[in-house]
Structures are given as C-alpha cells and as structure tokens.
C-alpha cells in the first residue's frame, strides 16, 4: 500500500471524526442551553404540531427568505436542493449494489452539478455587487463559496470531462467503510475533489455552516405560542 493511500485513509478518518464530534457537541450545546423566556416570533403556532410544521417550512422551502429576498432565495434554494440531490447520488459509492430506493436519482444527470455550481457563483457575485452585502461580507464568506465551487467543479470534471474510474473510487470508499483500506485512485482531479470535501467537513462544526443544525434550535421559530396557557420555566430562572 502506498504512502499516499495510508495518508488519505488516516486523513479521512480524522476528518470524519472531527466533523462528527464537532457537529454533535455543537448540537448538544444548542439542545441543552436553556430558554428562560418564551420568545416565538408571532403570529406563531399555538400547538406543538404547528411549530414543527413551521420549522419544516423553513428547512424545506426557506419560507422566511422567500418573503424577504427572492434573488437570494432562488440562489440559496437551488444550491441546497442540488446539494441534497448530489449527496444522495453519492450514496452509490457506499453500497455494493445501488438499492432500488435510490434508482430515481439517476434521473438527475450531470446538469445537477451545474445547478449546484451556478447559484454559488451568483451568491459570490451578489456579495460583491450589492453595497449592503459587500459591506457585511468577511473574507471567510468568500472562501467558503470558493471551497464549495471547487468541490462542484472538480465533481463535474470527474464525472464528465476527465472521467474518473468509478470502480476504483468505489473500491476505495467501500474499503474505508469496511475498514479494509484499499488503494487511493491515482486520479489528481478525484484526489482534489476528495481533499476539498474533507476540508469542508473539518471546518464545518467551527463555522457558520452550523446553520444546518442550528436552525432547528431557533427559539423564535420552534417555540409554541402558549405562555398564558402554560407556565414556562427553566432551572436557572426559577432559582433567581
């Protein structure tokens, strides 16, 4: 086994460990930090089921963003939708034979990669062109977009323009899954694509990318509007 394979095998495990540990400890923190007062943004649902539906609308359709800014909504929504589809498409690397449940995904050809890439480009341009978003953008906002664009571009390349040997990628990934390290495919585009994804995973829990889990814990969106009917108490506030 080559040194590069050994390195990438270790790198992958470390990256995934950092991602999982970082993400889960962050989520644990969000889940366990108290909310001493009821602060749903009203009008808000008066039943728990309504609050769940409200969160589903936000996560599934970016409802608030839709009513706020159509261009950012369009770019953001298309990107996230394409990302979700691309992630599911990658599932075939993790199964010996693709489960029937995933067959529909083959409807989405290479163009889905562009649907992921173009909104990123638009989001990048919007940051530069609109004076308000240019003012609030910090260097990392651009770098994250560049990182995601890099992942999208290399992904498109492996699939279409400089085709990577899918079989050897699958062997490599299955080896990682089953903890039987297999050779890293000797394909520079694939290696760059894979490296960028691992970097994204490592950075994820320490960054604004935590909006992915954090949105579920937003008190203005997930709380039920029932403070008159139910007395809301938290431990530290009750003591005071």
């Amino acid at each position: 086994m080559s040194g590069l394979t050994l390195f990438y095998t270790a790198f992958t495990y470390i990256a995934i460990a950092i991602f999982l540990y970082g993400f889960l400890t962050r989520i644990w923190k969000y889940a366990t930090t108290p909310s001493p007062l009821k602060i749903p943004l009203t009008p808000a649902p008066v039943q728990p089921a309504g609050a769940v539906y409200r969160i589903i609308q936000e996560v599934g359709f970016f409802k608030s963003l839709f009513y706020s800014n159509r261009i950012i909504w369009l770019a953001g929504y298309l990107f996230h939708l394409a990302l979700a589809i691309v992630l599911i498409k990658h599932a075939r690397f993790f199964f010996a034979s693709t489960p029937v449940a995933f067959h529909w995904i083959t409807t989405f050809e290479i163009w889905i990669g562009f649907i992921m890439l173009l909104p990123l480009l638009l989001l990048f341009l919007l940051r530069l062109v609109i004076d308000r978003t240019y003012y609030i953008s910090i260097m990392m906002d651009y770098l994250i977009l560049v990182l995601l664009m890099g992942i999208a571009v290399t992904g498109i390349l492996t699939k279409y323009f400089v085709r990577t040997d899918i079989v050897s990628v699958k062997q490599f990934v299955m080896g990682l899954v089953q903890v039987r390290p297999e050779a890293l495919p000797a394909d520079p585009i694939f290696i760059i694509h894979f490296t960028l994804v691992m970097l994204l995973l490592i950075y994820f829990p320490f960054s604004k990318l935590m909006h992915a889990g954090g949105i579920f814990f937003s008190p203005t969106r997930n709380q039920v509007d029932d403070p008159r009917e139910l007395r809301h108490e938290t431990a530290w506030a009750a003591k005071g």
Partner: peptide, 8 residues
C-alpha cells in the same frame, strides 16, 4: 453561531 450573512 449560525448567521451566514446572506443579506436578507
């Protein structure tokens, strides 16, 4: 933590 500075 979670503001992405989308500009909305």
């Amino acid at each position: 933590d979670i503001c992405v500075r989308c500009g909305s």
